[in-house]
Every structure is written in C-alpha cells, then in structure tokens.
Nucleic acid binder design. Sequence first.
DNA 1: GTCTATAGGCTGATAGAC
DNA 2: GTCTATCAGCCTATAGAC
Lengths: 187, 187
Amino acid sequence: MRYAAGHKEATRARLLSAGGAVIKKNGFATTGVDSLMETVGLTGGAFYSHFSSKSDLLEAILARELNLTREMLTSKQDLPLEQWLSETLNRYLSFEHVKHPETGCPIPALSTEVARSDKAVKRAYEAMLGEIKNRLAKRIGQDAAWAAIAQCVGAVVIARAMASDASGKKVLASSRNFLKKALLKNK
Amino acid sequence: MRYAAGHKEATRARLLSAGGAVIKKNGFATTGVDSLMETVGLTGGAFYSHFSSKSDLLEAILARELNLTREMLTSKQDLPLEQWLSETLNRYLSFEHVKHPETGCPIPALSTEVARSDKAVKRAYEAMLGEIKNRLAKRIGQDAAWAAIAQCVGAVVIARAMASDASGKKVLASSRNFLKKALLKNK
DNA sequence: GTCTATAGGCTGATAGAC
DNA sequence: GTCTATCAGCCTATAGAC
C-alpha cells in the first residue's frame, strides 16, 4: 500500500466534516460530487472508494452532525433548569446560527431534503432525533421536548428565508420569549 | 393572434398551480423547467414567454401559495378562540398534511430553498409571512403568532423526514398538545 | 487511495420556425 | 403562444491507469 495506514479513514473523516458544512450551506441535491471532493482536495472519481452513493454520504453526514447537535443540546445538563434552558435557547435561536448554517444544526438545513431521500437516510435521521428528544424529555417532558425541537427548527428555517435581518431577528426573539415562558410554566 | 384572448393568462395560471404542487412535492432546485412545463402539457422552450427565469417562477408561486395559506389560517376567524385554534391546529398539524406536501402549505416545503434564493424571492416570502403573522397576532398576540407559525412549520418539516409514520404522528401530536395548552394559558 | 477519462443524461436558457 | 433544435455546463457513476 502506497498510503499510510489510516489514510482512508482520515480522508473519510475530512469528507464528512467538510462535506457536512458545504451541504448545510448550499443544499445536498444542489451540491455535486466533484465540488464535495474539492473541499478535501481530491477529484470526483475518488468519491466512490469512500461511499457507495451520494445518498450513502448523506446518511453518514446526518449521523455525525446530529450527534454533534445532541452533544451541544445536552452539554449543560447539570445546570438548574431555568439557566440551562435560557443558555441553550439563546444559542440555538441566535442570529449567528441563522447566518451560519455551515457550522450550525443539520435539522433546519437538511430536513426537507431528508424527507425526499430514501428509507436508509430517513432511518438515520429518525434514530438520532429520537435520542435528542429523549435527552430533552428528561428535563422538560415528552410533549414539550418534541414541541421545543419543532419550534426551534421552524424558527431557524423561517428566519433564514427572510429578506431582512430585522424580520429574522423578530422571529427568533418571539420564539425565545414564548418557549421560555411556556416551558417554565408547564413544568 | 392564433390563440384566444386570455390564453396566455390561463396558461400562466395553470403553471402557477400545477408547478406549485410539483415543487412543493419534489423541491424547486431538483425540478427542471422541462418537467414543470410537462405538468401543463407544454414543452420546455415555451416557459420563457411566461417567466423571465426559473427564480421568477418561484417568486410568483410563493406569492400565490402563501396567499392560499393565509386564507386557510384565517378563514374561521369568527369562531371562539378555543374552537378556532383547535380546528386550525388540527388541520395544519395533521398527518394528511405531512403526507401530501403537494396540496399543503409552501412554508415547510420551500423555506429552505427560499433561504438560498435571490433577494426578490425572499422579499415576496417575507411580505406574505408578515401578513399571515399579523392576522394571527390579532387573536393570540405578536410573540405567540410567530412562535405558533414556527412550531407548526418545524413540526411538519420534521414529521416529513421521519422514516416511520408513528414517529411523525408523535411529533404532530406533541405540538398540537403543547400549542393548545400554551396559547390558551398565556392569553 | 487517488487519478483521469468517459458514459449517458440532466440542467437553464436562447434562437428562430410556424 | 408554442414549437423544435441547440448551447454549454452540470450531474452521478463507472473503468482502468498508476
């Protein structure tokens, strides 16, 4: 073998990381294999020694990215409820998050395309989302967990589609206010 | 002129209606001009006598579709709050809506692509969404209006990406429960 | 493990016939 | 107003050289 041991694994890891950023920003269907490979300094033909299809890549990227989201949402679980809630919501529902999909959560960026993908992709998505929900449910309950996820995702999706920054910020602020109030009251 | 007066307008109207259904189902970027024209029984070349670009079509479709959503959400404004809320939420957050994007609301189907479109498209989106929010705000208040829209959109987006029907239904039910409780309490 | 070359098919958009 | 023909460029995926 003319390449160091672990070379393939390293390339695959870079592909998941750099590729994930690109498709969160520009979309999965609209990003070609060639430009995906460019992000790791390789040419298109080499793609298929790492993944059997483009859809296979989406599945792997989703697993990785959703894992990161789960860690992020549950990293401060030892804080008191109100503080944990406030910090987590302020971070997820920030204008920074809206403006930078490439470093953000895959759910608002990729869900619509997951909905149009094959069963394997959807299964990866469903499994990870279920885990995220379970972790949140421990603190705020089952219904509230799904509702909070849905609302955060929807707010980011809508804020990103707005023409003006001001409108996007309004959507975020309303969702933050509403969720904090509702989640602390119903507890 | 070899075609009846109003023929062009009629073709354009059919294009907006049939095209809207197709792109809500299959996505805007992934649907070609040729297949868009097929839905109204014409060939690709004829597209450009109706719209100056594909993006121009998206703008027109959004205006039309969001107008329909607005009418739907506010059609039963004369009912008592609780009843209006319940009926509207049950309809928007239904499994039927999740399974049939082609006849459903454009916001969960197209927002992610609007976010990646040009300023004109985003302006059309922002203007119509603002109107929808204003109508809802009259009944439930400003923050709650944005929050409710965000949550409904997020729930449908997520439910559509789930592998199993059961998971999608859970997300919908949680959002329905949570929203009804929160909106009636905070009033 | 990555390369180049290639296949066959799709894209958005234009020109000119009818 | 719609047609066909055409452009250059992109797509996913494969074959075979190195």
